[in-house]
């Protein structure tokens, strides 16, 4: 019994000692990045290379989503708040104001390139050729009924949407509303198709609210399945179900090109060069935002920016292109790297 008694004391004492040791805090010596899950693979790649090739520590990158990232970013200045946030959309005016209220007045905006959003299916089926209008009619909650009014979406197969399309059930898997990919898909593909009806386009000017409600709402009767944020899951489900389609970012298509194929939209296939030159209609810009106030206190921010804005990273032959980032044109890259170098403030 004596032995178990001493075991007992030792356990309590060591536990107490460990608590005491763990209390010392250290100042931050590495960059903290938060933000979009779409930019996450690119930011982490640069972070890793930066850590390897310089004497600075590799930045810590968190994937919080664009909105969540900007919220953290705008919470304040100093060690406790992130230095950089990634976004798969531009910062909003309200967010800039919120930042300013918390003392963040100087923000550097950096555009890093483009991302294409694809509608893909399994290689076991035929490749589809769609227009934005087809996508809108197949996936909207309400569709035009032909005489200036709307009706609940009646289409069950692609053939009903457009007689040129195959007689296959409409079944599309995509990200949930919390995802930036979903936002971009709705804004670019759905709204693009929606606008192709003249009376709806006119509605935009007269009644913006009902225009948005009509163009941005995705049907909820089972034809569009919210498959969660995990794009790998969607790719796997496409393999299992050759008649289904999936909505995800270009990098997942790029990495799984042996099993899935991207549909042509308005006659343009989602290929690297075609997204880069802007002819593929469903693509968006990716950004990150830097807190200028933190540049003095957190070491390595300037060097990290230089690494990101170098041709070996974001150029057409750079390592980010290998990861699926669609680079900007030479002209655009030049402009943005100038802005980065001068740490030019964001102008809305």
């Amino acid at each position: 019994m004596l032995r178990s008694k001493s075991l007992f004391t030792v356990a309590i004492l060591s536990a107490g000692a460990l608590t005491a040791v763990s209390n010392a805090a250290v100042a931050r010596d590495q960059i903290k990045i938060v933000g979009s899950s779409t930019v996450f693979p690119f930011a982490t790649t640069v972070a890793e290379r930066f850590g390897k090739s310089t004497d600075f520590k590799a930045p810590v990158v968190e994937s919080t989503g664009s909105g969540g990232g900007l919220k953290l970013f705008c919470a304040g200045v100093g060690d406790a708040h992130p230095d950089i946030t990634n976004a798969s959309r531009r910062i909003k005016k309200s967010e800039v104001e919120k930042c300013a209220k918390n003392g963040i007045k100087d923000i550097v905006e950096v555009k890093i390139g483009y991302d294409g959003i694809v509608l893909a299916n399994s290689r076991k089926s035929k490749r589809m050729e769609l227009t934005l209008r087809d996508i809108f009619l197949a996936l909207a909650k309400d569709v035009p009924d032909g005489d200036g009014k709307t009706k609940p979406n009646p289409y069950k197969t692609w053939k009903q949407v457009n007689a040129d399309l195959p007689d296959v059930k409409i079944e599309v898997m995509g990200p949930p509303p919390t995802s930036g990919t979903r936002d971009a898909f709705v804004e670019l593909a759905m709204e693009g198709g929606c606008k192709s009806f003249d009376w709806i386009k006119a509605l935009k000017k007269s009644d913006k609210k009902s225009y948005k409600a009509l163009c941005h709402r995705i049907r909820e009767d089972g034809a569009f399945v919210e498959a969660g944020e995990n794009d790998n899951l969607i790719v796997q489900k496409l393999n299992a179900n050759p008649s289904a389609f999936g909505v995800f970012g270009f990098s997942f298509l790029d990495q799984n090109s042996d099993t899935v194929q991207g549909s042509k939209i308005s006659g343009v296939a989602p290929e690297f060069e075609l997204i880069a030159d802007g002819s593929y209609p469903v693509s968006r810009s990716l950004f990150f935002y830097v807190k200028k106030e933190n540049i003095g206190s957190t070491p390595g921010i300037k060097e990290f920016l230089a690494e990101f804005a170098s041709n070996k990273a974001w150029g057409p032959e750079g390592y980010l292109a290998d990861k699926g980032l669609i680079p900007m044109s030479d002209q655009e890259r030049k402009e943005w790297s100038m802005k980065v170098e001068n740490l030019q403030n964001l102008s809305m």
Binding site: V26, Q30, K32, D231
Partner: peptide, 25 residues
């Protein structure tokens, strides 16, 4: 995403299940 192996309890770190989640994604 953390490359460096943490050296103390106040340095940024992940945990095993988190690593699984990140890789699966």
């Amino acid at each position: 995403f953390i490359v460096d192996v943490p050296k103390s309890v106040v340095e940024p770190a992940t945990a095993l299940p988190v690593q699984i989640f990140l890789w699966a994604d």
